[in-house]
């Protein structure tokens, strides 16, 4: 136990430093929280759906849970069921074998729901394009509010995409 405590004490809090004017990361973080509190009260729940990615986008989405981005500290949570979600975060070109599963996940998400497509593949099919087994971009299958380009987008860009969708959700 003392080793654990010593390790925690030695490392301290690593979540990105508080805003010092141009600290873009942290400023984004704060905006996200204000926006979410204004719109959704306490929290934003996200259901992540991999519809056919190469799994690099998943690695970067998972990174949002690390102490630097500390996404839960911003009141954003990844949930296990679309029925608990306010937002779907969808990666990949949509594999035709995933098309039905994605549609069903969308239908199972309660309205008003937001959809953020993550990565070049989700935006426009990426290097996989459309073919006998790929439907291409996410918007070919379900309505998309925001598309975050990048291969894969860095965690901070994914956060930015989530914020943009929340804003658009409020206007819409």
């Amino acid at each position: 136990m003392w080793r654990i405590l010593r390790q925690i004490a030695r490392n301290g809090i690593r979540s990105e430093a508080p805003p010092a004017g141009n600290d873009a990361l942290r400023v984004d973080g704060e905006q996200i929280q204000r926006e979410i509190l204004a719109i959704l009260g306490q929290a934003l729940s996200i259901r992540e759906v991999d519809a056919g990615s190469c799994n690099a986008c998943e690695l970067e989405i998972n990174a949002l849970n690390n102490p630097y981005y500390n996404i839960e500290g911003l009141g954003i949570r990844f949930v296990a069921s679309p029925r608990h979600a306010d937002m779907l975060l969808v990666t990949g070109p949509v594999a035709r074998n995933m098309e039905l599963a994605l549609r069903r996940t969308y239908e199972a998400t309660p309205a008003p729901k937001l959809v953020v497509a993550v990565g070049d593949c989700g935006c426009d099919g990426g290097i996989f394009g459309e073919g006998y087994a790929s439907c291409g971009r996410v918007a070919n299958v379900i309505p998309v509010d925001v598309a975050v380009p990048g291969c894969p987008p860095e965690p901070i860009e994914i956060l930015r995409g989530i914020l943009t969708a929340v804003r658009r959700g409020r206007q819409g």
Partner: peptide, 22 residues
């Protein structure tokens, strides 16, 4: 097989010196 997106066929549609991206 849910993620099958036809990668092996896709390779044949790309120029060999660019297919390293795929």
């Amino acid at each position: 097989g849910y993620k099958h997106k036809g990668i092996e066929k896709r390779f044949t549609e790309l120029p060999p010196l660019a297919a390293n991206r795929l």
